[in-house]
Design a protein around this nucleic acid. Structure first.
Length: 565
RNA sequence: UGAGGUGUGGCCAAGCGGUAAGGCAUCGGGUUUUGGUCCCGUGAUCCCAGGUUCGAAUCCUGGCACCUCAGCCA
């Protein structure tokens, strides 16, 4: 469902696509693709690309393929392909029957490689990786030509066949494009097209021992699938001349000719986005896995309680441009709050409970009170809350020595218990350690439901649960994984791990929750009145309910305190 | 110092020669049975310097800064 109130913003890629349609390029068709390498889980940065590619297809009535760019068996795994499929689907996109694998094109790619050799545009090189590297030159110094460069077509064809047949050891030879060893663009200095690698591929098994490089697989795959607009991130910009050069050799008249367009990848404050670093965090045990709720992965965000809608909204709002960027994670959080504010039912829960006894409330009496489920949406109805003499309130909602402008409970002060009564604090009792054990109050029977008949006002309204009519639950409170806004930008000798936030996870095991939550199902999202949004962790079982704090409420009281130093 | 890119308020980002949209954040104010939501209000002359023009963020020239590229990774 689109939000009609906010039209989707434009961006330069939409403009390009629109112009291509106008001028009838490729018959005016639009076919995009999202092409992840299955070597890790998808993250919020991929979500940007997914929304862009599928969004374009949707808007221009084309289609978008999901393609696994699986040309390097050493790093890839089915665990990853499975998670990718699941995550893209969860985000709400549909590729229909267009799920592809670059590995399905290996035979065709091989044939095209032979074609290049026959045209004299590719040759087998016998140098070792180090030799290739050394002979490539530097950006300012031209490279040296490989001895294999001058071999005959027949010889090259034979050697390439033998490479495929497994006659040479790993790394001993490569197939290289014959372009220009002096090119100012490093990617045009006879780039490697094929390497020998005896690794079992997660789909093709041991059928191959030579694998195409990215540059020789990507554009070709686009061509095979009839992709019109091949959208990728900026670091591939310098590859574009090679992308075009390779396509030039195989493209046939009348066929769709794909065009590569680059955009700036997403950087998010207080997190890292590179798959390698995320993999490190998983391997080193800094997080519980790829789907740890603190991870910026789609599965982590899902487990944290993010909605697909909020992520798509975020992708739309950050825009698409070519300038490097660092988006404040506050925007992501805002998108979530906005979504959840409308749909998350409000419930009562106390994270850090302290007993409150209402001295003048009859012992043994239990009342049912009406509680609105969501003030933003009447259709969500209301429920009954049980009220009694002893309740729990948030320890933080009582202050013996209240600072200026504190307007919750304090000695002698009156506040409203949400949906219940006005209560006034008349004292406290302490344990042997001096800690407050109980807060003693009296209530005004004339304020049932939280309204006073004489019109007097209270400044504070606090949440509560009946001691007898509530149960315990565990709550995990998450904060940013990194305390630095730019963890990747560690200073001299620094490492992104240096700014790992030691308080990114806090666990509260003695939380009290209202009875209606006992029936909460994994994944369900709620707003705990005044505390923030929470979701039931998927791993929760019936005996121990675990909630993940999805995002906190905007808290002007906290901001005020911070401002006051 | 080679090639390819980018530079608009704290963070994103529109703008495509006619006199700087929008969002987030911030800070004020109002409403409120969540210190939430909602509603108002708050800031830039566009990296710098020249030039063209009646008029430039938008065109030209020259600088400066930052990013990407020297994997048999993608």
């Amino acid at each position: 469902m689109d939000t009609p109130s906010r039209s989707s913003p434009t961006n330069f890629i939409k403009d390009i696509v629109e112009a291509d349609i106008q001028s009838g390029v490729n018959g005016g068709s639009v076919v995009t693709r999202f092409p992840p390498e299955p070597n890790g889980y998808l993250h919020i940065g991929h979500a940007k690309s997914i929304c862009l590619n599928f969004g374009l297809a949707e808007q221009f009535r084309g289609r978008c393929h999901l393609r696994m760019d699986d040309t390097n068996p050493e790093k890839e795994d089915v665990e990853y392909t499975d998670s990718i499929v699941e995550d893209v689907r969860w985000l709400g996109f549909d590729w229909g029957k267009h799920l592809y694998y670059a590995s399905d094109y290996f035979e065709q790619l091989y044939l095209w490689a032979r074609l290049l050799i026959e045209k004299g545009l590719a040759y087998v090189c016998d140098m070792t990786p180090d030799e290739v590297s050394a002979s490539r030159g530097t950006p300012t110094v031209p490279g040296k030509e490989s001895p294999g460069r001058s071999r005959s077509v027949g010889e090259n064809l034979g050697l390439f066949e033998r490479m495929r047949a497994g006659e040479f050891p790993d790394g001993s030879r490569t197939l290289r494009a014959r372009i220009d060893m002096a090119s100012p663009n490093m990617h045009l200095r006879d780039p490697v097209l094929y390497r020998i690698k005896r690794a079992s591929h997660h789909r093709t098994g041991d059928a191959w021992c030579i694998y195409p490089m990215y540059d020789f697989a990507h554009g070709q795959s686009d061509y095979i699938e009839g992709i019109t607009h091949s959208i990728c991130t900026l670091e591939f910009e310098v590859h574009r001349p090679l992308y075009d050069w390779l396509l030039e050799q195989i493209v046939e008249p009348g066929k769709v000719r794909p065009r590569q367009i680059e955009f700036a990848r997403l950087n998010l404050s207080h997190t890292v986005m590179s798959k390698r670093k995320l993999l490190d965090l998983v391997r080193d045990g800094h997080v519980s896995g790829w789907d740890d709720p603190r991870m910026p992965t789609i599965s982590g965000l899902r487990r944290r309680g993010y909605t697909p809608e909020s992520i798509r909204d975020f992708a739309e709002r950050i825009g698409v441009a070519r300038a490097d960027n660092l988006v404040d994670v506050a925007l992501l959080e805002h998108c979530l709050r906005e979504d959840l504010n409308m749909r998350a039912p409000r419930v009562m829960a106390v994270l850090d409970p302290v007993r409150l006894v209402i001295e003048n409330y009859p012992e043994g009496r239990v009342e049912e009170l009406d509680a609105v489920n969501n003030p933003e949406d009447e259709s969500m109805g209301s429920r009954k809350l049980l009220f009694s003499r002893v309740i729990y309130i948030e320890r933080d909602d009582f202050n013996e020595d209240p600072p200026p402008k504190y307007f919750r409970l304090a000695p002698g002060r009156e506040v409203r218990l949400k949906f219940a009564y006005y209560v006034t604090c008349v004292g406290v009792t302490r344990g042997d350690d001096g800690e407050i054990e109980e807060i003693r109050c009296v209530y005004d029977p004339e304020t049932r439901g939280g309204w006073s008949k004489d019109g007097r006002k209270v400044k504070g309204t606090i949440h509560w649960v009946s001691a007898e009519h509530s149960s315990t639950a565990e709550v995990r409170l998450y904060d940013h994984l990194f305390s630095s806004p730019e963890p990747e930008d560690a200073g001299e000798g620094g490492d992104y791990r240096d700014s790992l936030n030691p308080e990114s996870l806090r666990v509260a095991t003695q939380c009290r929750i209202e009875p209606s939550l006992a029936a909460a199902v994994p994944g369900a999202r709620y707003q705990f009145e005044r505390l923030g949004y929470f979701c039931v962790d998927p791993d929760s079982d019936g005996t121990n309910l675990v909630f993940n704090r999805t995002v906190s409420l905007r808290d002007s009281w906290a901001r005020m305190r911070k401002g006051a130093g």
